[in-house]
Design a protein around this nucleic acid. Structure first.
Lengths: 200, 200
DNA sequence: ACAAAAATGTCAGCCACTGACACGTTGTGC
DNA sequence: GCACAACGTGTCAGTGGCTGACATTTTTGT
């Protein structure tokens, strides 16, 4: 009884969602993304296919929602970086939340990248997610630029995310052998080498 | 009769393909991408749905193949740039083939961007295409870098393509009002400002 | 002219996804 | 307590993209 907090109902909904995500994750790891049907996932979670689609709009979403929170996380970290940092450096540091999470549990990150690389739809979905991150980060990047003319902040943000992406893929190719931190460093350094002239 | 050249058959195949592309294009422009079924396209081209899929693997492909040739075009232009140019500048100049094509026929470019923005699948597909371009350009970029350590060339290429993409989207948002050339210039300048120190 | 190869249509079927409806559960106001 | 509304769920039917298999009709090489 009692709807104590704004969301007794909402909580169960979230519980079902994460249970679906878990079940789907296991199946994807075992037999691959494409080889797993929504019917299987739903059955494994004890519900009908129709109900699955009441929790996730598409099959991809069961995986892709894992990226959703990251955008806001990146944005909040970026906003908290000291104002003295230039945009590129600040972006590099905000990416550390991803790097550190990956270092904390490399196997999870590796599995996630592996799954999202299996299907064209998922690869594409990850890129779409990054577009969303870009939208979140661009205004914050603009604040750190001298003269934020229109395409500038978005370009800088997109370039940084592209570096992150390249580093991630290189890391995936190395099977997690390489240091993701180093790869991100190198990728971003290749695009914007340390500018001593600007620094002083 | 007579199989004069290595590919009379191949030519008719290409003819059918481009006819399908035209028919599909018209339908997409008229009623939108999602609202157009493959059956409609096939019928309008006078063939069965099954045959459509013998020419294009997916519905998206009817649009996306338009981007395929661009990758090789970019690569060949990039390879022909003077060896004295640094990678970023050379990339900027190779993008000019796109800029100039767009200036030559802005309406086509605009329609293409509009269509590919209608559907999530197409938006994603365009990004996937860029990944392919990236693979083609990366080795050429590596040649122009001082010390092409592993993630470097890919990162630089990806960053440049990200700039191109941002410029394209900004141009689309402006309905083709802005100068695409200027947008590309600004986007790429924002990421790698002219480095006078390196130049001399 | 004839046999191999290729293009096409039809049919059946899988899978992601959606709308509609009916039923049971769960809170809400009285 | 109880009726009522809201919500979650299953079932069913249907659409659209896409594929394998097979039979039929062109092409094409000799």
């Amino acid at each position: 009884m009692t709807t104590r907090k704004p969301g007794l109902r909402e909580r169960t909904r979230q519980a079902v969602r994460s249970q679906l995500m878990e079940v789907a994750w296991d199946l994807f790891v075992q037999q691959g993304y494409d080889a797993t049907t929504v019917d299987e996932i739903a059955a494994a979670a004890g519900m009908s296919q129709r109900s699955f689609f009441r929790y996730f709009a598409t099959k991809e979403d069961v995986v892709l929602v894992k990226f959703e929170a990251v955008g806001e996380l990146l944005a909040s970290v970026l906003a908290d970086r000291p104002a003295s940092e230039d945009a590129w450096t600040a972006l590099r540091h905000s990416f550390d939340v991803i790097v550190e999470a990956t270092e904390r549990d490399p196997r999870y990150g590796l599995a996630l990248l592996r799954i999202t690389d299996q299907s064209a739809a998922l690869r594409a979905g990850r890129l779409e997610q990054q577009l969303h991150w870009q939208e979140l980060l661009t205004p914050l990047v603009a604040e750190r630029m001298n003269q934020p003319a229109d395409p500038g902040p978005a370009a800088l943000t997109a370039a940084a995310l592209a570096c992150l992406n390249v580093a991630n893929i290189a890391w995936l190719v190395s099977d997690g052998t390489d240091s993701l931190r180093r790869l991100v460093d190198d990728a971003m350094a290749a695009v914007q080498p340390v500018r001593h002239d600007v620094a002083r």
